[in-house]
Computed example of a mutant assay.
Amino acid sequence: MRKIVIGAGVVAALTGILLITLPSLLNAAGLHPDYQGEEVSLVGKRALIITTSHAILNKPGETDGDPTGVFGSEMTEPYYEFLEGGMQVDIASIAGGEIPIDPSSFYYFIKSKADERYLKDEEFQQKVAQSIPLEQVDVSQYDIIFLAGGWGAAYDFAESSALARLISDAYYAAHQPVLSGVCHGPLGFVKAEDSQGNLLISGRAMTGVTDKQVEQLGIGLTPYHPETELRKAGVEFESRTAFIDIFANHVVIDAEKRFVTGQNQNAGAEVANKAMLIIAGRGD
């Protein structure tokens, strides 16, 4: 009996050690890398983060499924990067109102430092609870537009004609805002058109979630997959791989320096920082 008790104690201790060290191990493997970008001061400039309004992970047409939404860090990482650069940051969503956040993104072993900061930030939480409806966004007010990803965006970003128009309007705006996004966020670019009615992103270098990552995670039921849809839109798709693609990371800036995209949840801070650097480099 004594041996059994000791054995159980050892197992419990080892399990406890594993649980405590798991976040650090995942970080070392590539999840939410500690990105140290260049310092940027954009006081007086404004950024807009746009998220999904879709809250259920299900097959198209079904009403039941696991809860989903925006992946936490894909909203929180850019938010604080913009904020620390002196920018005013607003939050919008496809339908407006309370934004659904994928609960798995706040699991203790997955959540990022920015997520932890968000969970104590009442002002940010209020913006998420009362997000601006997409139809009320005035693109002339923003210097950077950032499309946050997560599984929810796989349902409503590519389907939203309002988002496609917003991206087209922003692209042609006189002050030339930088258009950016990570993970499933770039799905919001796929139906935007140029002034001749052609797809705006055709021929541009971009990235987003890979088909390999979708397959590895076993979530193929969503109606749109970023790599597939970006390639269909004529994008020169770039990506990196890892033993599991959720640990990979890649950021792409198109030749015109109008679009900055990141492969997945690991790229939020880097994409935001590089978008700010483009704005700062213009000297305006």
Results as ranks from 00 to 15, higher is better:
residue 97 G to C: 10
residue 145 I to V: 14
residue 110 I to S: 04
residue 7 G to N: 06
residue 150 G to E: 00
residue 183 C to W: 01
residue 69 G to A: 15
residue 270 E to Q: 13
residue 83 L to R: 13
residue 32 H to F: 09
residue 176 Q to E: 14
residue 202 S to N: 15
residue 140 S to F: 12
residue 232 K to D: 11
residue 201 I to L: 09
residue 156 D to P: 03
residue 203 G to Q: 14
residue 244 I to E: 03
residue 197 G to V: 07
residue 47 A to E: 03
residue 46 R to L: 06
residue 73 S to T: 13
residue 74 E to A: 05
residue 62 E to Q: 14
residue 138 D to W: 09
residue 169 D to Q: 11
residue 283 G to M: 12
residue 229 E to Y: 03
residue 22 L to K: 07
residue 165 R to A: 11
residue 204 R to Y: 10
residue 215 E to R: 08
residue 253 I to W: 00
residue 62 E to G: 15
residue 11 V to L: 13
residue 232 K to P: 04
residue 134 L to I: 08
residue 268 G to T: 00
residue 227 E to L: 00
residue 93 S to F: 02
residue 70 V to A: 11
residue 105 S to A: 10
residue 150 G to F: 01
residue 231 R to F: 02
residue 196 Q to K: 14
residue 181 G to A: 11
residue 180 S to H: 09
residue 5 V to W: 10
residue 274 K to A: 07
residue 163 L to I: 07
residue 131 S to V: 10
residue 6 I to R: 12
residue 151 W to Y: 13
residue 220 G to N: 11
residue 64 D to T: 14
residue 91 I to H: 04
residue 194 D to H: 12
residue 90 D to I: 06
residue 248 A to G: 08
residue 266 N to P: 07
residue 116 E to G: 12
residue 222 T to H: 02
residue 20 I to Q: 09
residue 173 A to N: 10
residue 276 M to P: 06
residue 123 E to K: 15
residue 195 S to A: 15
residue 273 N to K: 08
residue 164 A to F: 03
residue 145 I to G: 06
residue 56 I to Y: 07
residue 90 D to S: 14
residue 117 R to I: 02
residue 67 P to L: 15
residue 86 G to H: 09
residue 107 Y to E: 15
residue 11 V to M: 11
residue 30 G to T: 01
residue 251 V to H: 03
residue 82 F to I: 04
residue 57 L to D: 06
residue 277 L to N: 14
residue 26 L to T: 01
residue 84 E to N: 14
residue 150 G to T: 01
residue 188 G to Q: 07
residue 153 A to G: 08
residue 128 V to R: 01
residue 68 T to I: 05
residue 136 Q to T: 12
residue 60 P to E: 14
residue 72 G to R: 00
residue 72 G to A: 14
residue 215 E to Q: 13
residue 44 G to W: 09
residue 179 L to M: 10
residue 139 V to H: 08
residue 85 G to P: 02
residue 9 G to H: 09
residue 51 T to D: 04
residue 274 K to I: 03
residue 13 A to V: 06
residue 59 K to Q: 15
residue 201 I to A: 07
residue 131 S to M: 06
residue 62 E to W: 12
residue 132 I to T: 12
residue 88 Q to V: 13
residue 75 M to Y: 05
residue 146 F to A: 05
residue 210 T to H: 01
residue 22 L to G: 03
residue 165 R to K: 12
residue 26 L to S: 04
residue 92 A to S: 12
residue 188 G to D: 08
residue 185 G to M: 03
residue 277 L to G: 13
residue 274 K to N: 12
residue 133 P to E: 14
residue 216 Q to P: 01
residue 223 P to E: 09
residue 227 E to M: 00
residue 58 N to Y: 05
residue 235 V to S: 05
residue 2 R to Q: 14
residue 206 M to A: 13
residue 177 P to E: 08
residue 211 D to L: 00
residue 127 K to H: 13
residue 39 E to L: 13
residue 187 L to F: 08
residue 7 G to H: 08
residue 58 N to M: 10
residue 217 L to E: 10
residue 247 F to N: 03
residue 121 D to N: 12
residue 186 P to K: 09
residue 252 V to W: 01
residue 12 A to M: 09
residue 147 L to P: 01
residue 4 I to F: 13
residue 56 I to D: 03
residue 12 A to E: 06
residue 253 I to F: 07
residue 59 K to S: 15
residue 132 I to V: 15
residue 269 A to G: 07
residue 216 Q to L: 03
residue 183 C to H: 02
residue 59 K to D: 15
